[in-house]
Amino acid sequence: MIEVQDLRKNFGERMALDGISFRVEKGEILGFLGPNGAGKTTTMRILTGFMPPTSGKAMVAGFDVMLRPREVKKRIGYLPEHPPLYKEMTVQSYLGFVARIKGVAGRQIRSSVGSALERCGLLEVAGRLIQNLSKGYQQRVGIAQAIVHSPEVMVLDEPTVGLDPRQILKIRNLIRSFRGEKTVILSTHIIPEVEKLCDRVAIINEGRIAALDDRARIGSTLEIVERVSVQFAPLAQPLKGRLELLEGVRSVIQEDGAPNRFLVEAQVGSEISRRIFERAMEERWPLAEVTPLRPTLEEVFLKLTGEERGVLS
């Protein structure tokens, strides 16, 4: 549904995108995760036809964004970083205006606006001026604006920013309800949001895709470190020293409040779980449990976007 090839964008001397490529299949939800200034917004602006790339190609719904912008724009709903609101209009008339310029047929405008109002929880403020709404409600109007014409593809730049926790859940449910039916790209800084919402995750850093995979696999394919949690039987003599001697082990940490539970970190490819089992058999350790741990998305993110580099850029 969306296909991006080697997208580059320079702002004068400054390189914002340095060869971004990815695909999103129909019905999928892709999450962009990345530090400030990584290039998420820039990528979205190119996809929606707001600005051209310096080089590279972007296809949406089978149309080239550069060559057939109109066809692409008809099919995209876009929530920019700052919701594009005409503050002096009422919510209802604003959505009516957006529906019209997005090409919704005259007869369907009322019902489109009505359903967008309902889906975004805006019915009770429909007649109020946007400038008098709170930040969170304005954000909801921004989301309503992106779905009012029932687009096939949605590009949402930080959709849940400024919302209260209940609204965040509602908006996430709304986005989740598009799964399978619409293609969604969203950007966020909230890691649990990606975990809860997205089928796939792209971690963007310094204008490049640092990792792109299924939400569940993104950690394992990255292979930062192998990690297991080892639980010995209660009252057994602690075997910390023995664990440390295993090949490939980098560190063994006793977990807080659990004298018999250890967190073992080992080199990638050392097959640490298997080694622990083998040694335990040989030496008859009172082993209770060995659990391999996947790196969390947060760890992956921090690892890939490296604190120091982020500060420098």
Binding site: R70, E71, L85, Y86, K102
Partner: peptide, 14 residues
């Protein structure tokens, strides 16, 4: 100024 350019320029109008 108010960012609505991003709305109209990404709408299917010339």
């Amino acid at each position: 100024r108010q960012g609505t350019a991003e709305l109209i320029l990404t709408s299917p109008i010339s």
